[in-house]
Design a protein around this nucleic acid. Structure first.
Lengths: 335, 335
DNA sequence: TTGAAAGCGCTAACAT
DNA sequence: ATGTTAGCGCTTTCAA
């Protein structure tokens, strides 16, 4: 007999009892698997609705061989990770994968975040900008497929999706040159990850345009304070007509110093950032910058994970997503 | 006999076999539950380590009555949600709860986010700034304990943790008045959530200081464009010595307009935002603003959930966290 | 098309 | 202190 569940949540068995069929059949219907008559499907669905039945994800996972679960480690403090998450969900949906999120916070380190995913039996792990040592990542990769996004690590079994920072910087320079700029300064990110590559890209691009004489590089850093200091240096010498800055945060800080010195952007000097972070798009800032295509990176990451889980032999360990220049209002032709 | 697992992950049984004890005993050891001799513990742990054994969270959950799992719905685009997540993990840890995250993204709506949590068998759900209609939240609350953070909803069974926006605005005004300001304008958030309350708080505070004649309210909105427009209006009339703006984003936009008009902040005009978002702390901005205590709100939310799960009868449906003024560099005494 | 039965990895009673 | 047994809610053979 059907026994309407009181305090506990309804189970497959409840639905089966109410419909008068076996649990196996209900299972088939709920999974939309082939092997049940339309009439039965109809009746089972009705009963399930009536009871407010929801399949138990965990019991399901426990039983089935594959979990189709992807673990994702992200940092709550990184805006860009938020964008990536959006892309990951979208890509996951397409390939029928569920995501299990595990956050890194000021009080929860990466190790904990990874451990919790391991317990959740995900089939693979996607790490967004991880800081763990290469050896740790390699070790993790021996247990399950690992894909690292937005950090160039070289470790056995660890696949990587990243952008080419130097190419991004080159696009920035190309844009400025096409506007007519010649004297361009780069305020770099010091030892920050990616800084060296962007600096190199800047130099290469300038040289490529025959402007190696006109280039200048000022030492900066990842934070606003480094940038403000660098901007001070910038004002001391002969002013260039344009600056490319390590990242958006720094670019905003630089612009602030420029404004305080009564220099208007872009009329008197053009500024380009890097990251296309949320500040860059603020209508009060409208910073020309280099964007990393979060959606594309996310879909590549999921695709790569899926391929590996399907046993495909994948050639390249690294997937490169070219960055893209986003032209807003901080760049213009020099007077 | 002990059979080292090849392709599949090691299970309790594998550890038991390797140690030569029963699975129940291994279970006890892994859970650090009482009922095993130190010697056995030692041996079991060694074996588990050797095999690289990790308990299967899902099987655990399936078996035990309580999952000690809290579902959290957050929006990847909200910086503040990131802060809250940090606090939730911290608070959860203290009370021995695990968090299951479910994100709202541009391609994944709140309904989906909630549905996935329901399948994960969490014991309660914490919603960060949900947009679902009150009726939907009430309905959800009939299935399990629901706590809403940062949105004032009135629905049966739905508990709320929020700040008092009017009190925040009052603090802003108090600060300005104590600096010597009298003529103060509020650029409001139009119909944005919370805007009405902040507007009311502003008026009340001004009146309280006997400045009802000196107050001015300009219609704004939640976005920068609304704010920029409002700032234009501001410049048309006689300039106040200070403005309080609906939120940080808008405040930044307002300051931008002021700067372009060669008005310096805070020398010629003081500005106060609201939210203490990441932009406010940028060293190039240093905006005086009103902060919502994310950590406190998070710990109250988890505490409330825990109380309800423990069957405690909780009196107040709403928990109020007073906001806090963060004084930075955009406020000063008028000349 | 449908049902019976076994078992995923674990914990909770109950034995010993 | 340790082992035995019985499920948690589901999927998956296999047989009817």
């Amino acid at each position: 007999m059907a026994s309407p569940p009181r305090d506990r949540r309804p189970t497959l068995a409840d639905v089966a009892a109410l419909t008068g069929v076996s649990t196996a059949l209900v299972s088939i219907v709920m999974r939309e698997a082939p092997g049940a008559s339309p009439a039965t499907r109809e009746r089972v669905c009705r009963a399930a609705d009536e009871l407010g039945y929801r399949p138990d994800a965990r019991a399901r996972l426990l039983r089935s061989t594959r979990s189709r679960l992807l673990g994702v480690v992200f940092d709550v403090r990184q805006d860009f990770h938020g964008d990536l998450l959006g892309g990951l969900y979208a890509a996951g949906e397409l390939l029928q994968y569920e995501l299990t999120l595990s956050a890194v916070t000021p009080v929860r380190d990466e190790e904990r975040a990874m451990a919790s995913l391991l317990q959740d039996r995900c089939e693979a792990i996607i790490l967004l900008g991880p800081r763990s040592p290469t050896t740790r990542l390699a070790e993790l990769a021996t247990r399950l497929p690992v894909v690292v996004v937005a950090r160039p690590v070289r470790a056995a079994g660890v696949h990587v999706v990243r952008t080419t920072d130097d190419a991004g910087q080159r696009q920035a320079v190309d844009h400025l040159v096409s506007l007519g700029h010649r004297r361009i300064t780069h305020i770099d990110g010091g030892r920050a990850p990616g800084a060296a590559q962007r600096r190199r890209g800047f130099s290469a691009a300038m040289t490529h345009h025959g402007l190696s004489e006109d280039q200048h590089i000022i030492r900066g850093g990842p934070g606003e304070d480094d940038a403000a200091h660098a901007a001070g240096e910038l004002l001391k010498g002969p002013l260039p007509s344009a600056v490319t800055v390590f990242n958006d945060r720094c670019a905003v800080a630089v612009m602030d110093v420029l404004h305080r010195s009564r220099l208007s952007v872009p009329e008197e000097i053009s500024v380009i950032g890097y990251d296309d972070s949320r500040v860059a798009a603020l209508s009060s800032i409208q910073l020309t910058t280099v964007a990393q295509d979060a959606e594309k990176m996310a879909s590549l990451a999921v695709g790569r994970v899926a391929d590996r889980l399907d046993g495909a032999v994948v050639g390249h360990r690294e997937l490169i997503v070219p960055p893209r220049l986003v032209i807003r209002s901080t760049t213009a032709s020099p007077v």
